[in-house]
């Protein structure tokens, strides 16, 4: 009982503004404060000997940052880029509380959504074998469910370190 109450309290602390985006027909939300900026798709330079979910690096106004293909990372079907494909530049904290700037490729950026505490529910448990830690919770709006992503956990510590090295 106390656990669920704590969870509810946690959920309430999750209330705030989220940048929502589309990936494979689903809506996901990112804490607005994690987002640095949104840019259209530009030329991505492929880096050799990197995992397949790393699309490469881009030159963001003189700064080279790694770009992650979230479709590959989430193990969805790979799709051609469209006019609406965007790169969301985010700040990710690794285990050492060291912040890393990187881009994530999404199908389409939707809007900035203000989600209340009561609109948020914890992520469903599918059993111990399924890892849902990277989902903060499920945001409910008028007609849809937005999965609120913990971007720090989407990429595991090692991956962030590895990605950080590419900077």
């Amino acid at each position: 009982m106390s656990e669920s109450a704590e969870k509810l309290k946690n959920m309430a602390s999750l209330a705030g503004k989220y940048l929502t985006f589309r990936l494979a027909e689903e809506e996901y939300g990112l804490e607005i404060l994690k987002v640095q900026e949104i840019i259209g798709l530009m030329n991505v330079t492929r880096v050799p000997k990197t995992p397949s979910f790393i699309r490469g690096v881009i030159n963001l106004r003189g700064k080279v940052i790694p770009v992650i293909d979230l479709r590959v990372k989430f193990e969805f079907d790979i799709k051609e880029d469209t006019d609406k494909t965007c790169i969301i530049v985010v700040q990710v904290n690794n285990d050492n509380n060291h912040s890393v700037v990187m881009g994530i490729i999404v199908d389409e950026v939707s809007e900035v959504l203000d989600i209340k505490g009561n609109q948020i529910e914890p992520s469903p448990s599918f059993g111990a074998s399924v890892d849902t830690e990277f989902i903060l919770g499920m945001g409910k709006t008028a007609q849809k469910v937005v999965m609120l992503l913990d971007i720090d956990r989407v990429l595991s510590g090692d991956e962030i370190n590895m990605v950080g090295k590419t900077e």
Binding site: K17, L19, Q36, E37, I38, K84, E111, V112
Partner: peptide, 21 residues
């Protein structure tokens, strides 16, 4: 025109992000 609208949208979103910060 469509492209311009898209860019404008992005700008607006970026502005929203900045505003939130």
């Amino acid at each position: 025109i469509d492209e311009i609208a898209f860019q404008t949208n992005l700008l607006a979103l970026n502005a929203a992000v900045e505003a939130a910060r």
